[in-house]
Amino acid sequence: MCAATAGIEIIAPAALWQNERAQCGWEHYEERGYNISNGRDEHSNTRGPALMRVGLFVTCLVDLMRPSIAMAALRLLEGAGCTVEVPRAQTCCGQPGYNSGDRDSALVLARKVLGEFEDYDYVVAPSGSCAGMIKAHYPDLFAGDIDAPRAAALCAKTFELCDFLANVLKIDAVPGRYDGTITYHDSCSGLRELGVKQQPRSLLAKVAGLKIEEMNEAEACCGFGGTFSVKFGDISTHITDRKCENLCATGAKAVVLGDLGCMLNIEGRLRRRGDDKTQVLHVAEVLAGPEEK
């Protein structure tokens, strides 16, 4: 792989590197050299992040319900020096249709995502569920389709936000600050489809003032399950109750997690149970800190 990349080595202008160093306060920038030698991103092996064109997949739920999460993701990626673009036509990854058995409409939306994002070096989503849809399920969705090879290429460069920050950019400082103890809920798709487990924890450990207290059954489902939460509301709520009990038992000020579906579910249940104190925060918001006005 290394031999193949030697031909496209691009040296970033020194001034730009210095500038980014100053902005991000990174100590070991040159030493790291952003050598990403796991084979999946050989095309950018020796590039600095400024030359990585990252397509931000906002996800429909974030776009509609909590745009501040995508804003935070944008700040984190740009802060790390990436060139981030947000394709304007993007909507949904097709997961609602895919999980409900409507494969055809899922494929139409997946093809749309493919067209919008395949030209980027990386595609990053602030959601394990939507990144998981692309990475873990597009190969099945495109199986036997003429676009299957293109879809496979898209899978290879798609990342959940924390995974990207921790394993690709390997950032070692984050701007966020949080005074208090949080507990982390592992969302199912991120954890079991993408192996997102240590990445958010290692990033959160860099947040000034923040302490992590693990809850019991952190890896257990929160009961959301997409349309399941509406179709089987009672069962869903019952599962969520258990999650609420586990997270409240830690005494943490906030539960932090990486998927908006789980967030809406957990927050909605906490509030209905009369808990208006425990914060429910997206990991991107905690890592990025508040937006500068």
Partner: peptide
């Protein structure tokens, strides 16, 4: 099915 046992946190008011 959702609101029987849960509130729905309202959107922030503008889309991303």
């Amino acid at each position: 099915g959702w609101t029987k046992g849960r509130d729905l946190p309202a959107p922030q008011g503008k889309t991303f």
